[in-house]
C-alpha cells in the first residue's frame, strides 16, 4: 500500500478538489476533415501583434507596403524601360 503524502495536507486537497473539468460531448471517432476544420477555426497568435503593439508600428504597417510597391515599380522601370 502506497503512503499518501496528501493525506496530511487537507487544505491542499481541498484546493485540488476545486479543479473541476467539464467534459464536452464528442464522438469516439472523427474525420481528418473535421480536425482540419477545427484547426482552421481555432484562435491563433496574431503575426502582426508585435508590430502593432509598438509605438508607430501601425503607421509602419501602412507605409511599408506603399514604399515596397514604389520600390518595385522603380526597379521595374529601371530594368524593363
Amino acid at each position: 500500500m502506497d503512503h499518501d503524502p496528501l493525506k496530511e495536507e487537507p487544505y491542499l486537497r481541498s484546493k485540488l478538489d476545486e479543479y473541476d473539468v467539464d467534459v464536452p460531448d464528442f464522438p469516439i471517432k472523427t474525420t481528418r476533415w473535421n480536425r482540419f476544420i477545427h484547426l482552421l477555426a481555432s484562435p491563433a497568435k496574431d503575426p502582426l501583434d508585435s508590430i502593432v503593439s509598438v509605438k508607430g508600428g501601425l503607421m509602419a504597417l501602412k507605409i511599408v507596403p506603399a514604399v515596397g510597391t514604389a520600390g518595385l515599380v522603380t526597379l521595374h522601370a529601371l530594368f524593363f524601360l
Binding site: K15, E18, Y19, L39, S42, P43, A44, K45
Partner: peptide, 23 residues
C-alpha cells in the same frame, strides 16, 4: 509561430494564484 492554435486563456486579471495555474 502564428499558425499554432492558442489554447483559450482564462482570466489573467486575478492576482491570486488559482489551483489551475499552480498545477
Amino acid at each position: 509561430p502564428f499558425l499554432v492554435p492558442r489554447a483559450k486563456e482564462e482570466s489573467q486579471h486575478i492576482n491570486r494564484m488559482t489551483v489551475r495555474d499552480a498545477v
